[in-house]
């Protein structure tokens, strides 16, 4: 249990070990640990940020979806209104057209009737004249009494 030269040997060994550790062992190990800690810290911060971004994006997306839905509903509403409007307009126009076509038909029928009446009058007049001629052939000249016949025709 006596102190001897071993002490010196161990002291030298101790010094060398500590110096070696200080130069080649501690700095790389501790550096790696600290660098990794930094990296993890950054990673965690980034993930936090990403989470927040995601939340924001989701909120935004939901908002946009809501907007889009509202817009779509609006558009459909408008379209429906417009459709009703168009149907109404067309119905009105159709009715008008119908009425005008009917009116035209009426007037055509009227004018035809007039024409035919006129014709019939003329034929009746002619027939009457022919009849009268036949009757009068025996009595009078056709030319002398044509003015009376024409007057009759005008009165029809």
């Amino acid at each position: 249990m006596n102190l001897n030269a071993t002490l010196i040997g161990e002291l030298i060994a101790f010094t060398v070990f500590v110096l070696f550790c200080m130069k080649y062992v501690w700095p790389p190990l501790n550096g790696a640990i600290e660098a990794r800690q930094k990296k993890i810290e950054d990673g965690l911060a980034a993930s936090d940020r990403a989470e927040k971004d995601l939340e924001l994006a989701q909120k935004k997306a939901a908002e946009q979806l809501k907007d889009a839905k509202a817009q779509a509903a609006d558009i459909i509403d408008q379209a429906k209104k417009r459709a009703v409007l168009i149907v109404d307009e067309e119905t009105l126009r159709g009715q008008q057209e119908r009425e005008s076509i009917i009116a035209q038909g009426h007037s055509e029928v009227e004018s035809e009737r007039n024409r035919i009446t006129e014709e019939l009058r003329k034929q009746v007049a002619t027939l009457a004249v022919i009849g009268a001629e036949r009757i009068l052939e025996r009595e009078i000249n056709q030319a002398a009494h044509s003015d009376i016949v024409e007057k009759l025709v005008a009165e029809l």
């Binding site: 001897n4 030269a5 071993t6 040997g9 161990e10 060994a13 070696f20 550790c21």
Partner: peptide
């Protein structure tokens, strides 16, 4: 004083080298 404990020296230095 000038005695060396060679077992102490050998084992301690050996273990120190293993550590390093």
């Amino acid at each position: 004083f000038w005695t060396w404990h060679i077992d102490t020296l050998a084992w301690s230095i050996g273990l120190g080298l293993i550590f390093l």
